Simulated assay, not measured.
Amino acid sequence: MDATIYHNPKCSTSRKALDKLRDAGIDPTVVKYVNEGWTREQLQTLFDEAGLTPKQAARKREALYKELGLDDADDDAVLDAMVEHPILVERPFVVTGKGTRLARPLESLDEIL
């Protein structure tokens, strides 16, 4: 099975998701999105496929989220902030031929494996 994980190695949940994929016999493409960044179109597609809005996919615990005043921002503003600051995207997202999920909770991966 082909799979892609949008991964942050500093995140324990992201590391656990990568381990879960490998334990399932999947050698996923690993995208370190914090380094590589996003385009607006990539994020919108990812969120649409996962059934989430940008605000639902935002990492609200990130200090930058509050600093930028994103609590009161609309989805377009949140999406723009995510493009400028990739760390604001919750992690990890996993894409397989069966769908796209934000692996929080980790068990949500079972739906697409």
Rank of each mutant, 00 (worst) to 15 (best):
I87M: 13
T39L: 03
P92T: 04
R91A: 07
N35Q: 15
S108M: 03
K98V: 01
G99Q: 05
L52A: 05
L46K: 00
E49G: 07
L64P: 07
L68H: 04
P28W: 14
K60I: 01
K32P: 15
L88Q: 13
D23S: 14
P105H: 09
R40H: 03
E67W: 09
T13P: 09
E36I: 03
V94A: 04
K20W: 11
L113G: 08
A57F: 00
H85T: 10
L43V: 01
D23R: 15
F47W: 10
N35H: 15
G97M: 06
T4S: 13
D110E: 14
K20D: 15
L43M: 09
D71L: 00
D110G: 10
A73P: 00
I87R: 11
L102K: 06
T29S: 12
D80L: 03
G97A: 12
L18T: 11
T53E: 13
W38L: 03
K98I: 01
S108T: 07
Q44N: 13
K16C: 11
D23C: 06
F47D: 02
P105W: 09
A57T: 02
V31S: 13
G51V: 04
L43N: 05
I26L: 09
E111I: 03
V31R: 15
I87W: 07
V89C: 01
D27W: 00
A81I: 02
F47T: 00
R22E: 10
E67A: 11
L46D: 00
T29R: 12
L43S: 02
A81P: 04
T53H: 06
N35P: 11
C11H: 09
